[in-house]
Simulated assay, not measured.
Amino acid sequence: MKTSVSAPASDLWVMPGRALIASSGKHLLPKRSGAYYFVGVVDGPLGCSPPCWR
């Protein structure tokens, strides 16, 4: 199986065979809609995961 790699725009669906890598200074925030998953791209401090942004 081939794998495609990309730096996604916001709200890109997560699919088998697709590797998503955040651009520099960005974070991927996984979201769910029913049985499907997608990622949002957000700005955030380096070395910090979403719970510490609050």
Rank of each mutant, 00 (worst) to 15 (best):
K31Q: 15
H27G: 03
D11G: 13
R18A: 11
W53E: 10
G44W: 12
R32D: 00
L12R: 10
W53Y: 06
R18N: 05
R54E: 07
V41E: 05
M15K: 15
P51C: 05
K26G: 02
G44F: 13
V14C: 13
H27W: 10
V5Q: 04
Y36A: 12
S6I: 11
S49H: 05
W53P: 01
L12Q: 11
K31R: 15
H27S: 08
R18T: 09
V41W: 02
A7E: 12
P30C: 06
R54D: 08
W13M: 11
P8G: 12
V5L: 13
S4K: 14
V5I: 15
C52I: 02
V14G: 02
G40S: 13
D43N: 14
V42R: 15
P30E: 00
V41S: 08
K2V: 14
P16D: 14
F38E: 01
G25N: 03
A35G: 02
C52D: 06
W53N: 07
V42Q: 11
S49A: 09
P16W: 03
P8F: 14
L46C: 02
G25R: 03
K26M: 15
G40A: 14
G25P: 02
P30L: 14
R54L: 09
V39P: 00
C52Q: 13
D43F: 07
S6L: 15
Y37H: 00
L29D: 00
R32F: 03
G34I: 11
A9G: 06
L46P: 09
L12C: 07
C52T: 07
F38K: 09
L29N: 06
V14S: 04
I21L: 12
V14I: 15
K31E: 13
G47Q: 06
L46S: 05
S4Y: 10
V39M: 01
G47L: 09
G34L: 11
P16R: 15
G40Q: 13
V39K: 01
Y37A: 02
I21E: 01
P45S: 07
F38I: 03
V42F: 11
W13G: 01
G40E: 13
M15C: 05
K2N: 14
L20N: 02
V41G: 06
S24R: 12
D43G: 12
P51T: 04
F38M: 09
G34D: 10
